[in-house]
Design a protein around this nucleic acid. Structure first.
Length: 417
RNA sequence: GUGGCUGUAGCUCAGGGGUAGAGCCCCGGUUUGUGGUACCGGUUGUCGCGGGUUCAAAUCCCGUCAGCCACCCCA
């Protein structure tokens, strides 16, 4: 009995239609990054496990695809790009004018349970500015993120940027006498506040001698608690993008390395999932690469955004249109007389040399079948090669207009049909 | 790691102790040089796997595995 194989849990096959969707998202990512002058880079898929431990501590090993290689090195499939970026940027930062505007599209791996919007393997767009600590850099990347969403067809009614300042909370913690360690615990409590039951929240806060009312009052102050947020907002206002942004101090992001501005993209319609997120990390490059390089970055994964595109009619329509245009074949060659097969191949080669995409029959089939196949593969034109060759017929499959021409005029005639 | 739901054709699913079903997809045909519709025909299954009850189990019971969803976590 033949054994059948399936993908490993959390891993995906990309059939042509899936690949088309993926490439559509990639093309939007690249287009918008280029629009802001960002340069593409990439790092290795396999890194020393230590690189991730250094940044995030030992617990992270549970979530890593890690193993010992044949040289007994502890290695991990990359779960994220930022540590590799920090290493690369630190190593050669003198070769690049600041600010460095870098982006990357790559595949990442996390050993965790597969669920909607999350797998063990996924693609992620990473976009970072290094070597500039200004609020303009923050606003520039948030603006890029907004344009990304707009280019994918989303509107103000579909998504929103939540903007916050982690530093404001650190000051709050200091003013309330928390130690550095307590502050980290505190930030995690804030991060989970939205989905923690009220009683449990009160209990965790009281361990730090805090009351929920203090937190609520602080959040209610909004931008006033931060030096950074008003500057970022002014920049976004100047760009006409401030309608997309809402100040929400409850956002602090899970990771410890964020230093001041943090933001997330949420979808408005479907349960406020986080689509993307990022923030400022002015100390991380120093930690990993021993070079002072303030940075701001964000990342967006392919799984949640694709779900959201498919669930949002106008975004899905935009994707479908773009793919139909991109994938259309120019010409389906149709063989009406077997003896003319070599002539058909010669004509197809001419057309291909001229840059046209062509399909040619591989087996002898009835003309009707060939037209049907041409139709189903989405060809724009059919070119019929038959006994009257070198006279050939060109038919527009959309409006059924037909012209006849000579073999040598094929390429020039095509534009007229 | 914890919980809920679901496992029947390639896909979406119906059926519910007595010979295995529908739609879609795919392939072929409707007399051989012109397409989307229509019609006809065809391929595909140990009903996830193992055990139990029964004259008889895809169906009921127990276990197990897998998938999905949620929790945990989220870089």
């Amino acid at each position: 009995m033949a054994q059948t194989f399936k993908t490993l849990p959390g891993f995906r096959d990309f059939y042509p239609e899936d690949c088309a969707h993926r490439n559509y998202i990639f093309s939007v990512w690249r287009r918008i990054a280029a629009r802001y002058g960002f340069k593409e880079y990439d790092g290795p898929v396999l890194e020393p496990t230590e690189l991730y431990q250094k940044k995030s501590g030992n617990e992270i090993v549970n979530q890593l695809f890690c193993f010992d290689d044949k040289g007994d090195r502890a290695v991990s499939m990359r779960p994220e790009l930022t540590p590799s970026l920090a290493r690369m940027a630190a190593a050669r930062q003198r070769d690049y004018r600041k600010p460095m505007r870098w982006f990357s599209i790559g595949q990442f791996f996390r050993y965790e349970r597969h669920q909607k919007g999350r797998g063990r393997e996924f693609y992620q767009f990473n976009c970072d500015t290094l070597g500039d600590d200004s609020s303009q850099a923050d606003a520039e990347l948030i603006s890029l993120a907004i344009d990304l969403m707009r280019e994918l067809g989303f509107t103000k009614d579909d998504f929103q940027i939540g903007l916050s300042d982690r530093n404001a909370w650190v000051h709050f913690a200091e003013n309330n006498g928390l130690t550095e360690e307590q502050t980290l615990t505190f930030l995690q409590i804030i991060d989970k506040m939205g989905r923690t039951p009220a009683e449990k929240l009160e209990a965790s806060l009281s361990e730090l001698n805090l009351q929920k009312t203090q937190i609520d009052e602080f959040i209610a102050q909004g931008a006033a608690v931060s030096n950074r947020i008003p500057e970022v907002m002014r920049s976004l206002e100047a760009r006409g993008l401030s309608d997309y942004v809402k100040i929400d101090l409850s956002i602090v992001r899970g990771l410890a390395y964020y230093t001041s501005t943090v933001f997330e993209i949420f979808d408005v319609s479907k349960g406020m999932r986080a689509i993307a997120g990022g923030g400022r990390y002015d100390q991380l490059v120093k930690l990993i690469g021993n070079v002072d390089l303030p940075a701001f970055g964000f990342a967006m994964g392919d799984m949640v955004i694709l779900d959201l595109i498919k669930e949002t009619p106008h975004a899905n329509h935009k994707m479908t249109e773009a793919l139909a245009e991109q994938e259309a074949t120019d010409i389906a060659f149709i063989l009406a007389d077997e003896d003319r097969y070599p002539d058909l191949l010669a004509c197809a080669q001419d057309a291909r040399d001229a840059g046209l995409s062509c399909l040619t029959p591989l087996a002898i089939q009835k003309v009707g079948k060939q037209f049907q196949a041409a139709e189903q593969t989405g060809a724009r034109l059919a070119v019929v090669i038959g006994s009257e060759f070198p006279e050939i017929q060109i038919k527009n499959l959309t409006n059924r207009n037909t012209i006849t021409t000579r073999r040598e005029d094929l390429v020039s005639a095509i534009t007229k049909v």
